[in-house]
Computed example of a mutant assay.
Amino acid sequence: MSDARRSRLPWVLWVPAALALALVVLPVLGLVLRTDLTGLPALLTAPVARNALELSLLTATLSTLCCVLLGVPLAVVLARARFRGVRLVRSVVLLPLVLPPVVGGLALLYLLGRNGFLGYLLDVVAGVRVPFTTAAVVVAQTFVAMPFLVVSLEGALRGAGDRYERVAATLGARPWTVFRRVTVPLLLPALGSGTVLSFARALGEFGATITFAGSLEGVTRTLPLEVYAQAESDVDSAVALSLLLVVVAVLVVVVARPRVLDGGRGRGERAWG
């Protein structure tokens, strides 16, 4: 049987696939058609637009770094550790995926706010107030974005199995050596895709940010919040900023999406996409 015949798809799949593609593409196309192209450069170079974009890129980068530093160990523990209640812990970790972001923002506010038990301690002991600061934006973005990284890494580890790590342990390698020389290389492809997903999610975060950090220009007003603010007063500016956010998100996914080397056949394959 020829390769072309084997790869032929059932025709019944094309209709829902086309509808799904239209559901994603047509709204973006509508945004482009609504944009005033003649006034677009002036709108995008306005100080408020530049400040919002710079703040979004900064906070999304910082939150992605936090996701990596905290999410990698968490994913390894969930995938490899054996303890009572691991399923419950996994469910709690994935909770931000299903919670409305505004609920997550309220939860953070009542944890780190002046009336929250941890926020009260920080205020009294160190004089630190987290809500309505740039740090609050990073915390909110990390809260909603980290589960994407954990899901990617845990799935990769479970799919790869632990046979290589067990072999390394039987050869006398210490746990840290096994993690550094065996587990981390297994994680690298998924780490790339998970990092991109986390960054993209942090870049588009709105609900938890506005609830926990507010919308202070130059301090907490990221690009999604600026779009919301402009939508109430200047629709053209809101549309232009929305298009900018779409372009930045597409560039992040297209440029940074990882590629994985298929060692068995010696040729590159995409991790996803």
Rank of each mutant, 00 (worst) to 15 (best):
S7M: 11
L9R: 15
L9M: 13
V12Y: 11
L13R: 06
P16I: 13
A17Q: 07
A17W: 01
L23R: 01
V28R: 04
V28A: 11
R34T: 01
P41K: 01
P41N: 07
A42F: 11
L44A: 12
A60Q: 05
L70W: 08
G71L: 13
V72S: 05
L74D: 03
A75Q: 09
V76R: 10
L78G: 00
L78M: 12
R80G: 05
R80L: 00
A81F: 11
A81G: 04
R90F: 03
V92N: 02
P96F: 07
V98T: 15
V98S: 10
P101N: 03
L109P: 00
L111E: 02
G113P: 00
R114G: 10
L118F: 13
L118C: 02
G119A: 11
L121M: 14
L122K: 00
L122V: 15
L122I: 13
D123L: 15
V125I: 15
A126Y: 15
R129Y: 06
A135N: 06
A136N: 08
V139E: 08
T142L: 13
V144K: 05
M146S: 03
F148H: 12
F148S: 05
V151Q: 14
E154C: 09
E154S: 14
L157M: 13
D162Y: 03
A168Q: 07
A169N: 01
T170V: 15
T170D: 14
L171I: 00
G172S: 06
P175G: 05
V178T: 15
F179S: 00
R180W: 14
T183V: 15
T183N: 04
V184C: 03
P185T: 08
G194D: 09
G194N: 02
T195W: 08
F199Y: 13
A202H: 05
G204H: 10
G204R: 09
E205C: 11
I210G: 02
I210L: 07
F212C: 12
F212D: 10
E217P: 12
G218M: 10
V219L: 14
T220G: 07
T220P: 04
L223R: 08
P224V: 05
S233R: 11
V239G: 06
A240Q: 07
L243Q: 02
L245K: 01
V246W: 11
V246E: 10
V252D: 04
V252K: 05
V252N: 03
V254D: 04
P258S: 09
R259D: 10
V260T: 12
G263A: 07
G263K: 02
G263P: 01
A271D: 12
G273R: 08
